[in-house]
Design a binder for these strands. Structure first.
Lengths: 341, 341
DNA sequence: AGCTATAATGTTACCCATAACATGTTACGC
DNA sequence: GCGTAACATGTTATGGGTAACATTATAGCT
């Protein structure tokens, strides 16, 4: 593999001159430029970024650390990150933590060793320590989606509280009184805030918040199924379910079908996070949609602004609105709870 | 950000000694090791990989270049790549070409500048040139999913021909005689081979191959819809559709619904590439399933073997089997073609 | 011609970790 | 007590590109 020195020798110039040609900087005569370009072509020379990266401690690389790459929500967000990064000549290393703190730590140290310029970080937990680790190495970081208390760091996230409020309110407006919520882990802010939004909607409507109707699990399909199965054993049985993400909703949906229940005839099901039409041609679930692509894009722009010292002075907390799409999976309850309506 | 020199100074030793402690290599006394470890902790020292990367021309990084990160098929494959890479301490840069040759070339040169150790490459086209570019820089590469003629390079792909054959054969066995195929671009081997498999099944069954029933488009949902809409105008109207990937199938499905047709009562629809249950809770489409995760995993293992000079001497062409899952979207044709059955 | 500004090209030091080599120290057998 | 092996630590060169500085050539002006 040829180096800038090989090119310089072949063209009969100094390496610096080759560098000038490559980067279009400084003065180079047309004759010299041609000679150098010819040499580059002949050798098939491709510059080695590692030299300057080491010298100037700048890798032009970002990392996106997320928790589940198989979920279209994150994929869509990843596209936003990638597009914003590419616009400015940055590449993105994608890391998948599977919600595992161990994998997360492995990835973080690996990325720090690589002297990544910045991280877009969906933390697998609510501990400040991993973020502090990043900040200690003076690596720029923007938290995505999930809040972490007691830490001075930029964050871009959706309005979990508002979204859950809207979903629950929608069910209440339909006449539901026994609404269960299938949530994620207790140490993830989105889980918690969505339960809070649910609570608020119930309380405002004068409905009792029954703790038995609140399920804490994780963001996976099979857990969604298990939580729904459990909930169906309660008396009074819930007539509606709020799922806190799309995978939980799908699991719940399967469990409901398994129990011989029809959505929405027998039970309503609403959820966070839509799937694109390319994936679900006939969307059915009533959803609270977060602007995933935009979330990734905007967070990356903020991160890049910080890297170029163009960012705002104070910490940013950007909360993106969540929009309710009412579809077929939610309907007024039937027997036995509200026979009138 | 502290360097190995800072640590050495603080511990009162040479940088080499620190290096030995970090890498657990050579001889270090317990006393010295403790001193060094203390210094590392106090400074929060994280080694800079760029030094050795430059020195030894080894970045421990792979790249996965694919065409659509929003498609669960690729995401699943990406998981396979990531898992295999992580096992051996490699990280993966994910690049999304959107089937654009221009984006692809940008990414390739960027990756070569970074001195990536190897690439897993889903080419956006059938030209050998991009692969030759990579090989010229002595960067290891394994082609994924799509064949490229006239080039000496490892490839891991699914049995497109066989899968399409099975799908078509299944429809023929159900009694369909007018079967349309909605394919991707003409310059992508998977598109072509799937059409070939379709042809073979028809011919074997003594059915005429009607060129009007063969549609060439791309792998996107809206194109799938357009192709299906066009096909419905034909006489005799197809009673069954073979979609060449999941997004095309979803688009087609939408178009069929739009046209007031029910699947499978009015028309059958079969496709390549399944969606995981977490995404589609109630799978409906009859599919030819490629082992996406395994494809990514195995290709990465092959690539890593090559990097460590442990690979087989000769070029590998690994063709993974495709499995047919018969579900509800395919049924015998009704009027007007085969009223008897 | 002499001066200066600009154009064109070259030289050197630097970034960080480590392989390769060099040197110094201790332990142990005889 | 001496030689040798194993242990312990240090020194130096290396990799590739470029900022900063240095030098030389040319053009333009008086």
């Amino acid at each position: 593999m040829s180096t800038i020195r090989d090119v310089a020798k072949r063209a009969g110039v100094a390496t610096m001159t080759v560098s000038r040609v490559i980067n279009n900087s400084g003065y180079v005569s047309d004759a010299t430029r041609s000679k150098v370009e010819a040499a580059i072509d002949e050798l098939g020379y491709v510059p080695n970024m590692l030299g300057p990266s080491l010298r100037f401690n700048q890798t032009n690389t970002l990392a996106l650390i997320l928790t589940d790459i198989t979920n279209p929500f994150w994929t869509t967000l990843a596209r936003g990150v990638e597009d914003a990064a590419q616009e400015k000549g940055y590449s993105v290393i994608l890391c998948n933590t599977d919600e595992s703190l161990e994998k997360q730590e492995q990835y973080l140290t690996m990325l720090l060793k690589r002297r990544i310029d910045g991280m877009l970080f969906v933390p697998a937990g609510d501990k400040a320590e991993p973020v502090r680790l990043i900040q200690k190495q003076r690596t720029a970081v923007v938290i995505l989606d999930r809040n972490i208390p007691d830490i001075d760091v930029d964050i871009v996230r959706g309005d979990s509280f508002g979204g859950a409020y809207q979903l629950t309110r929608h069910l209440i407006d339909l006449g539901h009184q026994h609404i269960a919520i299938l949530s994620g882990p207790k140490n993830i802010s989105t889980s918690v805030e969505r339960v809070e939004g649910y609570r608020q909607a119930l309380t405002e409507a004068g409905l009792e918040v029954n703790p038995d109707y609140i399920y804490w699990g994780n963001f996976k399909e099979n857990t969604g199924a298990e939580m729904a199965t459990q909930a169906l054993k309660l008396t009074p049985c819930p007539t509606a379910f709020v799922a806190v993400n799309n995978f939980i909703a799908n699991g719940a949906w399967q469990a409901l079908a398994q129990a011989g229940l029809n959505v929405p005839a027998d039970v309503s099901l609403v959820t966070f996070d839509d799937m694109p039409a390319s994936i679900i041609p006939t969307p059915f679930l009533t959803v609270a949609v977060q602007p995933a692509y935009h979330m990734g894009f905007q967070a990356t722009q903020l991160l890049l602004a910080r890297l170029l010292n163009e960012g705002p002075a104070e910490r940013q907390e950007i909360i993106l609105p969540v929009k309710l799409f009412i579809r077929q999976s939610s309907a007024p309850p039937t027997a036995p709870n509200s026979t009138i309506q």
